[in-house]
């Protein structure tokens, strides 16, 4: 019995220590990666290397996605261990809500706009 209670106590005491906050090496890796991941999309847009705008947009969003992950790992130090997993659980929950809010708003409003009766301004441009 006393052993059981002790084990329960132990597992509950994982939050004495402060959250993890990287080493000099991990900060420098994160910084190096984010400089590269920022510079490339800026260069892509400013020089206009990719002529197809859709391809360029998707490439830039890909770089942003990777850079956000780099920042979350190397600067915000989100991992599976801190706060016994609650940090990453709340993070994943937020990402899900974020995805629903963004994609839902864009989807619904896009359809609302395209199903709307044409305004006089649009009518005038019609053939």
């Amino acid at each position: 019995m006393s052993l059981d209670a002790h084990a329960l106590d132990e597992s509950d005491h994982g939050h004495d220590d402060s959250p993890p906050h990287g080493t000099l090496q991990s900060y420098l890796i994160g910084f190096g990666l984010s400089v590269v991941l920022t510079a490339i999309p800026f260069w892509l847009v400013m020089s206009g290397v990719i002529a197809d705008k859709t391809v360029a947009a998707i490439t830039i969003m890909g770089f942003a996605f990777v850079q956000i992950i780099v920042h979350v790992i190397y600067f915000l130090h989100v991992d599976f261990k801190s706060e016994r997993g609650w940090t990453i659980m709340t993070f994943i929950f937020t990402v899900v809500i974020l995805f629903i809010t963004l994609s839902g708003s864009l989807w619904v409003m896009y359809h609302l706009t395209s199903n709307m009766a044409p305004t006089p301004a649009v009518m005038r441009q019609m053939p």
Binding site: G22, Y27, L28, G30, F31, S34, F75
Partner: peptide, 9 residues
């Protein structure tokens, strides 16, 4: 961001 990291170190 990186200088704040240095402050933490």
């Amino acid at each position: 961001s990186i200088t704040y990291g240095f402050a933490m170190l």
